[in-house]
Amino acid sequence: MRTYEGEFTIEQPREKIWAFVTDPHKMGTCIPDLIELNVESETRFRSLVKVGVGPVRGKFDLTSELTVTEPGKAASLSIRGGGMGSGVDMKAQMELGDVDGGTLLKWRCDAVISGPIASLGGRLIDNEARKITEKVFANLKNALLALPDEEVAATDKTADQG
């Protein structure tokens, strides 16, 4: 098992971030090199992903399941699937916290890669798995940063109304 982790702060309210990360339509698009996204339910999405490290090229078919651990605060995303005769199992945990001027998102991902890719790519798989995971959260961060303020307002409003 490989563990990767990181954190970043977004100048947005926690509720809004929470709404984003628990929305399969939105979270799904943060997966890098996405070919196809199929949202199967409010907590479940299936994605076809292009995997490419130089000549190593193939597709991974991944099913992701979102679980809320603590509403508004902590959720986990389990990603399972595979391709090229190999298996991928990841459990990403996200925790939101209020900080000055925004929200701190801490993430930690335990990844298990099984099969020929793990066996053959001993020299590089760790680097790649880390990069892909980091890219998911970099994409998430960028997507959150790019959230339009109107929507913030709208979301806030919706929240207020509720």
């Binding site: 099984s114 066996s119 053959l120």
Partner: peptide, 14 residues
């Protein structure tokens, strides 16, 4: 083998 049971020398390269 790693802790996940991956065989780390499954060919004549390793």
């Amino acid at each position: 083998y790693d802790a996940d049971g991956n065989c780390l020398a499954p060919n004549l390269m390793d």
